Simulated scan of single mutants.
Amino acid sequence: MEIKNPVGWFEIYVDDMDRAQKFYENILQVNLEILADPAKDSEEKIMMRSFPSDMQQYGASGALVYMDGLKAGGNSTLVYFSCEDCSVEEGRIEAAGGKVFKTKMSIGEYGFISLGSDTEGNMFGLHSLK
């Protein structure tokens, strides 16, 4: 049996796409790209901004998503962004409008994590090996 990584994609639901996009671009120092509206032929409004990715590398990519009728925050799924040193990205959270929930802490042999909340009320994690 072939073993595969369990996560193939993630979505972070937002109420204000411009605000959320600016937040994540600021924290992670990346540019998010506009994805085509998958519901363009219906009256439902969906906006998506994808995180940069390389399908040949370990891990999953995903997108910020605005969808009519689906509110941000209050969910129970936590996305961890990979970092060189999570304290660097953690240091950008509050200046970008978010909140630090848990400062950098050791998780033993698995490295370090920081937890924060974005401008939409979504909790997210940062992970690094140093």
Score class of each variant (00 low, 15 high):
Glu44Ile: 15
Met48Cys: 09
Gln29Val: 15
Lys71Leu: 05
Gly116Cys: 15
Tyr110Gly: 01
Glu90Gly: 04
Gln56Gly: 01
Ile27Met: 15
Leu129Pro: 00
Gly125Ser: 10
His127Tyr: 13
Gln57Ile: 06
Asn31Cys: 06
Met17Ile: 13
Lys22Cys: 01
Asp37Trp: 03
Leu35Arg: 12
Leu28Asp: 08
Ser117Val: 13
Leu35Ala: 08
Ser117Gly: 07
Ser106Phe: 01
Gly116Ile: 04
Gly59Gln: 13
Glu109Pro: 06
Lys45Glu: 11
Glu2Thr: 06
Lys22Tyr: 02
Val88Ala: 07
Lys130Glu: 10
Asp16Pro: 00
Ile3Pro: 01
Leu129Glu: 11
Glu25Phe: 04
Tyr13Glu: 00
Cys83Ser: 14
Gly73Pro: 05
Ser128Glu: 09
Gly74Leu: 08
Gly69Leu: 11
Phe23Thr: 03
Ser76Val: 11
Gly116Ala: 15
Leu35His: 06
Lys71Arg: 11
Glu84Trp: 00
Ile93Phe: 06
Gly97Thr: 09
Asp68Pro: 06
Glu44Ala: 14
Gly62Pro: 05
Lys130Val: 04
Met17Thr: 12
Thr119Tyr: 03
Thr103Val: 15
Pro6Asp: 00
Val30Arg: 08
Gly108Val: 00
Asn75Gln: 13
Phe23Trp: 04
Gly121Trp: 09
Tyr110Met: 14
Asn26Asp: 15
Met55Asp: 13
Gly121Cys: 10
Leu126Arg: 09
Val88His: 09
Glu120Ile: 03
Cys83Gly: 01
Ser50Cys: 09
Ser50Glu: 05
Lys71His: 04
Met47Asp: 09
Ser106Gln: 02
Asp118Cys: 09
Tyr66Cys: 02
Gln56Cys: 00
Arg19Gly: 03
Ser87Phe: 00
Tyr24Trp: 13
Val7Leu: 11
Met1Lys: 06
Phe10Asn: 01
Val65Pro: 03
Asp16Met: 01
Ser87Asn: 07
Pro38Arg: 07
Arg92Tyr: 14
Glu43Ser: 13
Thr103Ile: 10
Leu28Tyr: 07
Phe10Arg: 02
Tyr110Ser: 13
Tyr58Asn: 08
Asp37Gln: 02
